[in-house]
Nucleic acid binder design. Structure first.
Length: 273
DNA sequence: TAGGCCATCTGGTCCT
DNA sequence: AGGACCAGATGGCCTA
């Protein structure tokens, strides 16, 4: 049994809270206080003086003991401990799944980067999926146009752009659209734009310092790429704090900038270096 | 210090 | 009956 389990189990009769990652000293202090609390609860009855009242007026333990008259207090306690343990495991599994989701999300991964809150993770994942779906739909449409135009010799394949110097290569409208879709984080026609591994490659580039992984088509949250000012409101959400995200209101935000804005990450200077 | 986030406990409900 | 799931309550930690 883990230390956390021992800790919570020791207080499971009466206490409602425990934290598994406390320093040793304060853990000892809390253990003592829990022991005192437990003693107090036992003095007030086995069901726990701090136990919540049910709708029927009695405590849960009292209600349950009516239906389990054959169970001793010890049995009830063991049952409660098992249920608590299962619930802990369930929540740990849920958190593991949440971590797995964070790992595949295009946001800053690093030891010095604060991880996304649960709500931010879910909001970001939702918008990420929406944006990918939108991009995929658009690309299918464009690819269809290209193939259709190629077979029929429509003007769509003829570039309307007059060739100029090498620094301004003619860009086919379809190519421009694709660049816009998959390379939206930086203007691909901008010579100042960081180099991409490929317009359609969806390969990521890691920023200097390694704190940010830049995905073409996704807005990088770092201040270099997304220099929003502190305290700026984006999409009705107060920025400046990563964990302060609130459920989004209003229309869907699927643009790359809004993607980060909706989880309140657009303006946080949390680069590791 | 207030507010956000989180872990945990707990009772209720639903499902197998 | 037992387990999964859910929501409310509570208290701790952290940050602005």
């Amino acid at each position: 049994m883990s230390a956390a389990a021992v800790d919570s189990d020791a207080a499971s009769i009466c206490s409602r809270s425990s934290s598994p990652d406390l320093p040793a000293d304060s853990a000892v202090a809390r253990f003592i206080s829990k022991q005192m609390l437990k003693t107090l609860c036992q003095e007030q009855g086995a069901s726990g003086g701090l136990g919540l009242r049910t709708r029927h007026g009695g405590t849960g333990a009292q209600d349950r003991s009516k239906g389990h008259t054959e169970l001793s207090k010890e049995d009830l306690r063991d049952l409660r401990l098992r249920v608590n343990s299962r619930e802990r495991k369930r929540m740990h599994d849920l958190n593991q799944a949440m971590d797995g989701l964070r790992e595949v999300m295009p946001y800053a991964h690093g030891p010095s980067v604060r991880k996304l809150s649960k709500i931010s993770t879910l909001l970001l994942a939702r918008n990420y999926i929406l944006m990918l779906s939108s991009s995929l739909q658009e690309m299918r449409k464009l690819v269809g146009e290209v193939y259709g135009a190629g077979h029929q010799g429509t003007p769509a394949l003829r570039s309307p752009v007059t060739p100029v110097g090498p620094s301004q290569m003619p860009i086919h409208p379809v190519t421009q659209s694709l660049r816009t879709i998959v390379g939206g984080a930086h203007s691909t026609s901008d010579p100042q734009s960081p180099p991409h591994s490929g317009y359609l490659g969806f390969r990521s580039t890691v920023h200097p310092g390694g704190s940010y992984t830049h995905y073409p088509g996704m807005a990088c949250p770092c201040p270099l790429c997304h220099p929003l000012t502190l305290g700026q409101r984006v999409g009705g959400i107060e920025g400046g704090r990563q964990l302060g995200a609130k459920p989004a209101q209003g229309p869907l935000l699927v643009s790359p900038g809004a993607l980060w804005a909706q989880v309140g990450m657009g303006n946080t200077a949390h680069c590791a270096d």
